[in-house]
Amino acid sequence: MTVLETIPQENLLEAIPEKLGITEPWVEKGGVHWLATGGLNVRTLAAAMNDCHARFITITAYQLPGEQGFRLEYHWDLNGKVLGFPFQLSGNSIESIFDLCEAVDWIEREIHEGFAVDFMGREYEPLLLRQGDTPGVNLREEAKK
């Protein structure tokens, strides 16, 4: 049994930053409890969420201006609260959490096809939205053309 599994549900929210080694507190804004992730590895986060029995909701992808890359916001539900974890990608890749969290499958595939973000360590075939087409194309950039 992991540390988070032993903590009562009502105290879990406070225990998560400490478990993840994050000193900054939760910030509640826009209906979400946000936690700054800093140098946190997304797979460490996914494992911690599994320990809490949090339910994965979705990933929201943002393409940042110019060469700034992407921001991915991972969301889980913990006892009716939406937790948000932003990850800044300087390039276009991040580790996949598919093997830790099955529910992430389709949204990782969709972001891969919509934004050309590479979730490392997983297969993409078949493509979710464009079967048989070229993988790794940023559809937004294609739309601009």
Partner: peptide
């Protein structure tokens, strides 16, 4: 400026919107 998130229990289950 910013992002807001809302969730609703639709007939088929949870719908979530993130609006920036």
């Amino acid at each position: 400026a910013g992002t807001a998130t809302s969730r609703v229990e639709a007939p088929r289950g949870e719908v979530m919107y993130s609006v920036s």
